[in-house]
Amino acid sequence: MTVTDTPPRARIGRFMAANPLVPLILLLIALLGLLEAMNPGIINRLWLANAIKIAIPLAMLAACQTLTMLTGGIDLSAGTAATIAAYVTATLSPLIGVPAAVAVAVACAALIGLVNGFGVAICRVHPLIMTLGTGLIATGCLLVYQRFVISTGTHIPDFLVWLGTGRTVGLPNGLVLFIPFAVLLIWGQRRTGFGRLLYALGSNENAARLSGVRGWQVYLSLYSLSGIIAGITGLLYLGLVKTPSLSLALPLDLPSVAAAVVGGTSIFGGRGGYAGTIVGALILTVLTTMLTLLHMPEGARRILFGLIILAVTALYIRLTDRT
């Protein structure tokens, strides 16, 4: 076997398939170069720190999508869970103190995840439907809850503001939370039994079941974990935006799916990983900045955003398709 008789495109394809991160990082660098060419001098330390600060909540919410997509699922209630956690923290802090409020908030998000897990694991409902449904119910609950606390006023805990907007030596403080989180996930998805079970169930559920995997236990813990991650993201986002609202993290919902997809996680399960998702979230953040700089009408910006996601995914699938 010689290297020379394979056509170059196939060779590139094979290399890309073996190292899916490489094309993504190349794309990110190309986009940064384009941005610099469009607006010379924009890329400096301040801008980079700002871009990372904005990308962190998106990347964390996309973790929910990555993990559930590995098993062939999706979590469309993540944005709602994040919003609820943020709103509950902000409104309960003046009433019962910060630690208790945070605990209640994360518990609410975990409850949403647990209900998702129950539906997907025990009742075998399609995750898309189940998470859409719980998202709808949770939004209704939030609207009802809001009427009881409308007079209490809001308080945003100081450490969340520090985490969300503060900077230490030029780097956003959010990284204090995000780096251990990302390391834990990337380590967990490949090196722990739970992580491998996700890939196993996503590749072939029947084979996994016949090898003795209790699928329902995995799904139940997976969706609860996804809910908890969404809740923590909501807390971080609250510190970043600093005004609680009833639709705080909802605009992040679909972009979080896009970040995971652009990052190379297969929506049918079994392929991908969190490292790609992080790069995907950065790519989306840079894209948004670029489109804002272009001074286009809002409509044209959305069209470009959609087309770019489609083009990136199509190109990626072309390059890494092994068949």
């Binding site: 959305r302 959609g306 995914t313 699938i317």
Partner: peptide
């Protein structure tokens, strides 16, 4: 493009 339906229509949602 051979991209999954759900991804294509998600992108087209924005378009």
């Amino acid at each position: 493009t051979r991209v999954p339906d759900i991804v294509v229509t998600l992108a087209m949602l924005f378009v």
